[in-house]
């Protein structure tokens, strides 16, 4: 199930049109089925807005987004989203959290339970199924959120800085777990991140957004072999070249967006 964006723009207006903000401007992007694409760019560049438009939470002001050839008009079960802040049901146990989407899909309790357990095993959480989210660490919460999303088997995974709230070590472990799970399922992934290293480690292609209004500045293919390992990347010249190339492009935009902010006095 691929994703196709055609001239997608988003214009935010305050009541009475006194203030207009063009958040996203003319995005054309094609993501193949099973491809892992990372979106990077300065804060407030509209990459998350774009992700939410693919999710169907926000409608574009112009242009259109196709998922599997059909135009996106509303949220739907063909897409799954993972947020930075986990968004678990605090009053449900880990197992019930993962089961929710399955029961929503119409599975009976028994089947939903079995499926949920399979995904909890995949994310190494089987020992915690009776526990409430409050008792889990950040990394574990995010694993629950990922298991919950994978469990109802969306064809497209939308991830909005999913590891942004985690500490550095947990983050690295989670990235590798995500890659392992993704390679097992071959889902299409759109992954928003601030980290250039993360984008290169994970993605087939890295899409660099410009400062506001968000346009696509450059799309960089990451032609590193998989499975990727940190040790190899540490000494691989191609990895270093890619990192510096992408980082330079991002840096340029980050500076622009800081100047823009300084000029308009608008906080991010």
């Amino acid at each position: 199930m691929g994703i196709k964006a055609e001239g997608v723009s988003k214009l935010y207006e305050t009541a009475g049109k006194r203030r207009q903000v063009l958040a996203v401007d003319g995005i054309d992007l094609e993501v193949d089925e099973g491809e892992f694409v990372a979106l990077v760019g300065p804060s407030g560049c509209g990459k998350s807005t774009f992700l939410y438009m693919v999710g169907g939470f926000i409608s574009p002001s112009s242009g259109r987004i196709l998922v599997d050839g059909r135009a996106v008009t509303a949220p739907g079960t063909d897409r799954g989203i993972v947020f930075q802040e986990f968004a678990l049901f605090p009053w449900k146990t880990v197992l019930d959290n993962v089961m929710y989407g399955l029961q929503e899909k119409g599975l009976r309790r028994k089947e939903a339970e079995a499926t949920a357990r399979r995904y909890l095993e995949m994310t190494n959480l089987q020992a915690f199924e009776r526990v409430y989210p409050k008792e889990l660490s950040g990394g574990m919460k995010q694993r629950v959120a990922i298991a919950r999303t994978l469990a109802y088997d969306p064809k497209v995974l939308l991830m909005d800085e999913p590891f942004g709230a985690l500490d550095a070590q947990t983050r690295v472990i989670m990235q590798d777990e995500l890659l392992r799970v993704w390679q097992g399922t071959q889902k299409t992934v759109l992954f928003v991140t601030h980290s250039v290293e993360e984008a290169i480690h994970l993605a087939d292609r890295v899409v660099i957004f410009t400062a506001r209004p968000g346009r696509i500045k450059e799309i960089v293919p990451v032609d590193l072999p998989r499975p990727r390992s940190r040790e190899v990347e540490l000494f691989d010249r191609r990895y270093a070249e890619l990192t510096s190339r992408i980082w330079r492009a991002v840096e340029e935009e980050v500076k622009k967006s800081m100047e823009l902010r300084a000029a308009t006095g608008v906080a991010p």
């Binding site: 799954g80 989203i81 968004a87 929503e104 109802y152």
Partner: peptide, 9 residues
């Protein structure tokens, strides 16, 4: 969480 519920159908 509300968005998530909507996306899960």
């Amino acid at each position: 969480l509300i968005n998530k519920v909507r996306l899960m159908g």
